[in-house]
C-alpha cells in the first residue's frame, strides 16, 4: 500500500468510519447484554423467580 497515493485520505476515512461504526455497534450490544445479565443475576440472587404455573391463574 502506498500511503502517498492520491485519495489516500478517502480510503483511510472509509476504513476508519467502518471501524468506528462497527465498534460502537458491538460495544452497545455488549454493554446492554452485560446490564441485563447483571440485573438478572441480582434478582436471581435475591430469590426472585418467574411466575410459576401454580399462581398463573389469576
Amino acid at each position: 500500500m502506498d500511503l502517498n497515493a492520491p485519495h489516500m485520505n478517502f480510503i483511510l476515512a472509509c476504513y476508519i468510519i467502518s471501524a468506528v461504526v462497527l465498534v460502537i455497534l458491538t460495544a452497545s450490544i455488549v454493554i446492554r447484554s452485560r446490564q441485563v445479565e447483571k440485573k438478572l443475576d441480582r434478582l436471581t440472587a435475591a430469590g426472585a423467580r418467574r411466575r410459576r404455573k401454580a399462581d398463573a391463574g389469576k
Partner: peptide, 22 residues
C-alpha cells in the same frame, strides 16, 4: 452480534417476567 443480541433479548424478557412476578 446477533447471537449476543438475541441472548440479551431473551434475558430481558425473563427479567421483565421476574420483575412483574416480584
Amino acid at each position: 452480534l446477533h447471537l449476543l443480541a438475541l441472548k440479551t433479548e431473551v434475558n430481558a424478557r425473563k427479567l421483565r417476567q421476574m420483575q412483574l412476578a416480584e
